[in-house]
Amino acid sequence: PEAADLRALAKHLYEAYLKYFPLTKAKARAILSGKTGDNVPFVIHDMKSLMEGEQFINCRQMPIQEHQQQTPASSATNGGALLGSEFSFVGMTSVTDHGTTNAVELRFFHSCQSRSAEAVREVTEFAKSIPGFVDLDLNDQVTLLKYGVIEVLIIMMAPLMNKDGTLISYGQIFMTREFLKSLRKPFCHLLEPKFEFSVKFNTLELDDSDMALFLAVIILSGDRPGLLNVKPIEQLQETVLHSLELQLKVSHPDSLQLFAKLLQKMTDLRQIVTDHVHLIQLLKKTEVDMLLHPLLQEIMKDLY
């Protein structure tokens, strides 16, 4: 009976994962391997292709016809729609140098933030679906999200990445790793550590149902700074850990110590998040006209 409950929990979390996250690993890997005949992603590999593709960044639906050069309807994409007009972020450029690479880089970075903020919202909805999460002290729910969300976002980037680049805009655009490395300092340092992590993480070959459980384990970390009531969080995590362990035995019977290897990734994650936050703080100082999305600001303030 206990195993049945653990399997039911895995199924429940997988359903919530499918409900709240727009691009599954299965679909991303299909796009990356070129199996889906119809939606071949638009490739951004240099400034020119970035400018051409910019209008599509963060769009949910790319115009179906060929990606030939159209007159961009508006430079704003829907990425900033998150949280209503709270912070319409995309398309914010310094008027003076609209066309220069400096402005394009900043606009791209703002689009990344806009998508990240939307992803935070998706993770929040997923967290609320974890049985018992909404019954925790509200302050602890905030703390678990504050410290867990960037780790979750990095894990969710892995399926979109390979050694050569990453999918963005719901899998409609493929941006090359070399292009990202060619951006000026410090933008060029932003994604490289995530590529290194993702290439290794992907060798574990988790599927979406494994990912759903792993994300819940990350969110339910009882050692986050400032938690008021650790006990119930640890109990919830223990149940999800049992479910994850069983799930990995069932779906990866001959993958030795996969459970242990997966848990070890959580220590790598913390270092990547710490470095990421410090880089963003540096960016805020050096980039005069760089704005930080208020939700991301809230999360990163006094984090590490």
Binding site: H12, E15, A16, K19, L83, E86, V120, R121, T124, E125, K128, S129, V134, L138, N139, Q141, V142, L145, K146, P294, L295, E298, I299, K301, D302
Partner: peptide, 21 residues
């Protein structure tokens, strides 16, 4: 914790139907 206004609102936002049982 007024410092996390948006996170608070996202957590309390019940604009969503409960996930399938």
């Amino acid at each position: 914790t007024e410092r996390h206004k948006i996170l608070h609102r996202l957590l309390q936002d019940s604009n969503d139907s409960p996930t399938p049982a």
